[in-house]
């Protein structure tokens, strides 16, 4: 498969990248790992006149940095790096699990976190886990920088709050106090190279091991036009001491909140049903990790 012709420029700094985007106008595209953009270009779904590479913007920065309760994930970190990052695994295990679930080792060595989010696919495997940690993304343009909750970032399939002239420069998580546990589950037909039929990421924060739920997050992939927070399920869990029934009810509530469609990978009805299963299982695993016994 061949790529159409385009102009290529490599930015040396975020500011330069923003400048290049501003200059290029609507026909520009950013390339980091390239695993999404190049496939879309080969299929003729996208035909940017100018491609701006940001591969050099990483500098020597680590994939994940922790400063107190604040965790910063570099948008140019590859899925492979995040999948194997001990800091991330320890603090937000389901984000590492989401990164591990992406495509295949070959793709994970190229694909970046920023790309996974900026492409704004409902099936992006890192999106639900990051939503479960109330992650925020930093967006920078020639005119300045602002921070957006990831929950407000996704606006539709392939659409996000990221403007054409903006760069996603940071993904940040403020780790909550208390005892947290998380999980990510992805349902597919194969064990690799899969686009999720449905996925669920959850995070539970208890006031103490075995205690009450201080915060609950339930986020879903591939069952709505955007990676989706299941707020009714979260509300159901909040302030309760979790048990099996509660967890099942939360799964069912999440299923009701899903807005799936029929497509070649599964029917909407099956997806909705699977949300209940995945959320229940993920909550059970997360609870155990949070130290919530029965």
């Amino acid at each position: 498969m061949r790529l159409p012709m385009f102009e290529y420029a490599e930015a040396k700094s975020a500011a330069e990248a923003c400048g290049m985007l501003a200059d290029a106008g609507p026909d520009a595209a950013l390339i980091a790992g390239g695993t999404d953009l190049l496939v879309r270009m080969k299929r003729g779904l996208e035909r940017p006149a100018r491609v701006v590479s940001i591969r050099r913007l990483r500098g020597g920065l680590p994939a994940v940095a922790r400063d107190g309760a604040r965790l910063a994930l570099h948008p140019l970190a590859t899925m492979a790096e995040l999948a194997a990052d001990p800091l991330l695994e320890h603090a937000c295990g389901n984000v590492a699990a989401g990164a591990r679930a992406v495509g295949s080792p070959l793709v994970r060595n190229l694909a970046t976190l920023g790309g996974n989010l900026a492409s704004a696919r409902p099936c992006a495997d890192t999106a639900p886990p990051l939503l479960s940690w109330d992650a925020r993304v930093r967006l920078q343009s020639a005119s300045g920088e602002h921070s957006v909750p990831l929950d407000d970032f996704f606006t539709g399939p392939g659409a996000s709050a990221l403007r054409r002239d903006e760069l996603l420069t940071a993904v940040e998580i403020e780790l909550p106090a208390g005892s947290s546990g998380s999980a990510f589950l992805k349902l597919g037909q194969r064990a690799a190279l899969e686009i999720a039929i449905a996925s669920a990421a959850v995070r539970l924060t208890l006031d103490r091991p075995g205690g009450t739920i201080l915060a609950a997050r339930v986020a879903l992939g591939s069952v709505a036009p955007v990676p989706l927070r299941a707020r009714a399920a979260e509300d159901l869990l909040l302030g309760r001491v979790p048990n099996e029934d509660l967890i099942r009810e939360a799964g069912e509530a999440a299923a009701r909140e899903a807005r799936p469609i029929d497509d070649l990978r599964a029917s909407a009805a099956y997806r909705r049903e699977m949300v209940a299963v995945l959320v229940r299982r993920a909550l059970t695993a997360a609870l155990e990790r949070a130290g919530g016994g029965r």
């Binding site: 295949s104 194969r190 064990a191 690799a192 190279l193 899969e194």
Partner: peptide, 24 residues
């Protein structure tokens, strides 16, 4: 191999035409 209502293949690729991987 899946088709749309007009007879066009929906999955002419190895992403959605799923042959087993080493993990399957």
């Amino acid at each position: 191999v899946l088709f749309d209502a007009r007879g066009r293949i929906l999955n002419p690729n190895f992403s959605d035409y799923k042959i087993p991987t080493a993990l399957d």
